[in-house]
Design a binder for these strands. Sequence first.
DNA 1: GATAACTTTCAGAACATTTTGAAAGATCGA
DNA 2: TCGATCTTTCAAAATGTTCTGAAAGTTATC
Lengths: 188, 188
Amino acid sequence: MFSDSVSSHDERLKPARERFVALWGQMASNWGIPRSMAEVHALLLIAGEPMNTDDLMAALHISRGSASMTLKALQEWGVVSRVHIRGDRKEYFQAEQDVWKLFRTILRERKKREIDPLLEALRECRELTGKPPAGAARKIGAVRAIEEHNRRLDSMLEFITMIDALSERLIASGKGLEIAAKILSKAS
Amino acid sequence: MFSDSVSSHDERLKPARERFVALWGQMASNWGIPRSMAEVHALLLIAGEPMNTDDLMAALHISRGSASMTLKALQEWGVVSRVHIRGDRKEYFQAEQDVWKLFRTILRERKKREIDPLLEALRECRELTGKPPAGAARKIGAVRAIEEHNRRLDSMLEFITMIDALSERLIASGKGLEIAAKILSKAS
DNA sequence: GATAACTTTCAGAACATTTTGAAAGATCGA
DNA sequence: TCGATCTTTCAAAATGTTCTGAAAGTTATC
């Protein structure tokens, strides 16, 4: 009744969309992303065409509030954008269709929200045990324990730093992942 | 009183460990991993030495049941292993110390549990709209809608297939990520 | 500037996950 | 085999997250 101008033309399209939406929602919840947020995204992604709040409410059986908050979050993540459709007062929403672009957008956000703060916190943590013990070596064991602790932290830091650099590359380069894949297939 | 044979030697070690544990737990919950599971892992990781259930309970203020279930899950993920210490009836646990190995282990598990089933489900989903409409083209719009739907699904499939192949490489190759990072830093 | 159409907000309800603790189940040594 | 020690299980409780719906807010039109 809503977005069916297209989807009702073939009776296989709706079930196929529903399947995809369910799939995407399932996967998202593995990754700590709210199911309904993923479902809204999935529907916009697979539908291709812009949809309005009422379309989404009807198709996914969610409340107006939920639709509104979910759409807001998706826009903050940069994966969904508003569209105005002339002659209609409703807001329409559409998902980024290019999967590579989508991937880079998500990576950029996660780096900003998670990797960057983590790196900073790790460095702070490392500084807690930076200098040798204040009053000389009280016990020989203390020095060694701190040293080992630091060695462990340092290798963690090195690893996360590398992930960080890698993310940066993937975000910047248009076909970074493709390049990585190709190269890895040779370099393994 | 428990694992303090080492950690009490320097008064900075305990706070530093606590900081790291908190950090790791924080990060994990961003990724849909139970906080206390990550905290147990973090403590074993940063402590280096094997610890028993009572050590963990005391250090993290968790119940015996929680410790037991968490340790079980960590072992299933392959990131923590049991150790027997002679002369002690308690079970001890230790975390894999090599961060690269740790990374590959986690990647292997996530691929098995998430990417592989996702790919299969996506392919099934794709088959729902595989053949052209049964009773010839009922409307010209129906055919086009299906075609566009299929195009979208296919690009999704292509992308996930690539992620899958990349994971495989990273899991197999000892220094895959390092190679990728190095090469990308030139190839960008 | 009043009305109608649409969107956002947010407190509480519904739902889901995680933790607890006590009981049952192992395992070991004698 | 027994008793002591340690581990696992699981139903219920605690906690945390997401969703709802009605009210408040906003915007466009006349």
